[in-house]
Design a protein around this nucleic acid. Sequence first.
DNA 1: CGGGATGTTGAATATGATCAATGAGCGTGG
DNA 2: CCACGCTCATTGATCATATTCAACATCCCG
Lengths: 254, 254
Amino acid sequence: MESSVSLAAFPRLDVRTMADDGDALRFCSTCAFSQACLDQGMDKSALLDLHVLVEHVGPFHAGEHIFREGDPFEAIAAVRAGTVKTYVIDQDGREHVLGFHLPGEVIGLNAIDGDHYPCNAVALDTVMLCRFSFPKIAVLAARLPGLQRQLFRLLSRDIGRAALLAGDWSADQRMAAFIVGLSRRLAARGFSPNRFQLTMARTDIANYLRLAPETVSRVLKRFQQEGLLAVDRRELELTGRDVLEKLAGPVLRD
Amino acid sequence: MESSVSLAAFPRLDVRTMADDGDALRFCSTCAFSQACLDQGMDKSALLDLHVLVEHVGPFHAGEHIFREGDPFEAIAAVRAGTVKTYVIDQDGREHVLGFHLPGEVIGLNAIDGDHYPCNAVALDTVMLCRFSFPKIAVLAARLPGLQRQLFRLLSRDIGRAALLAGDWSADQRMAAFIVGLSRRLAARGFSPNRFQLTMARTDIANYLRLAPETVSRVLKRFQQEGLLAVDRRELELTGRDVLEKLAGPVLRD
DNA sequence: CGGGATGTTGAATATGATCAATGAGCGTGG
DNA sequence: CCACGCTCATTGATCATATTCAACATCCCG
């Protein structure tokens, strides 16, 4: 039933050699990774080196797997469009959602320690990726301090992010933090912060937040009654951002 | 009341220039970091380069801070002896324990993304450290692929580790996973896996596991009644390792 | 239309938290 | 050496939040 298109096995597509600077900068304009590398002190000629080892892959359609637990680790990837869910299946066959990855964010970082991906990654809608061979990018990072620094930062940031959900927060705080977090991440990529689609099912949200799906329903309903949200199916509008931010504050630490 | 000896501000002690290979390898024999780097393909001459930028600092005594949230980030450090607790204080003044760091483990990795430490680190008993200036080690990593690889692995591993506690496990599972986890980490450093001291207070364990201190007491008592543990004050003996491993299994994923 | 997946609602239940009190260990000082 | 005080740990009783179980509603796609 489920299709499985392994990133590792994905044919190398769309590898172009850059001719001129302008082309290079247009090449991956939606991929925040390049911009961040520039910010870390990489010059444009270095960016060219980075871009020649990028492969644009996709589209992956909803339900298609990008990689699976145990697949040999070869590459990290930046999400260019769509949403990726990462998850594991435990011994009892229960799914545990590890995270949702929006455009501009990088998947596969937790695979660096080990030869295989430690989790599954699946597209929730139509997903486009920039694939970076990790061995190659590691070699390049040795030449480009800006790139090395950016990779260290990405990894370090994820450590902190993973700790957020670990707290013993209430269902309300978790839900608020999830919504505000999504909103901010979307805003950072240029999307509307106050009105967006939930690309994941309620059960996925519940699983991610370690709540029962019923609890997610009830909290959303109450938020709506309190005027914090307008919920219509998977469409979300933030109507009481200040209160949500305040609820989410302790979780997001700001 | 509390003493604060910032690692950042700590005077550079014990910086030696290595004369010969034998000396270098003895230099940091209790620091697993060097060994791990060797395993990652670094040769001995490269290890010399690494060792000249190591500073052995300490001892820190119980309650002394190694660094504090907001201190400028300059260095990561490997624990050579003792236990380090990392934690944050939230807006309401409540402490959140992020982790306990045993000999051989590295602290400060989550500070790489940002100019300041994002948490506090305090010694729970007498702590000795190997301090590595991060700017210097990053420069060195560009020359030494084995070192770069080891740093990437350390960072990547911590991402996975942080996700473990995030699950919605029962108090019994959390407690078992904590004990089994400690046991394994101690065993990896050559300590007895079935009999060891808890260097942290019950309240710290509770805080780390997101349980009430009372719950920790009750679970420990029940484990003892069921013959899984012998608890005496902070002394712990694992008498039913198989059952504990089975309880911890889903949390530790093995 | 119809059927299956997804989402919502209500009532009962359970797990761990909270509150309050007691106990044990340990350092200090008389 | 014992008394004191402090911190840390334990125990019991009550309470609250979120889960579970069951039924129903809705949406989407054939």
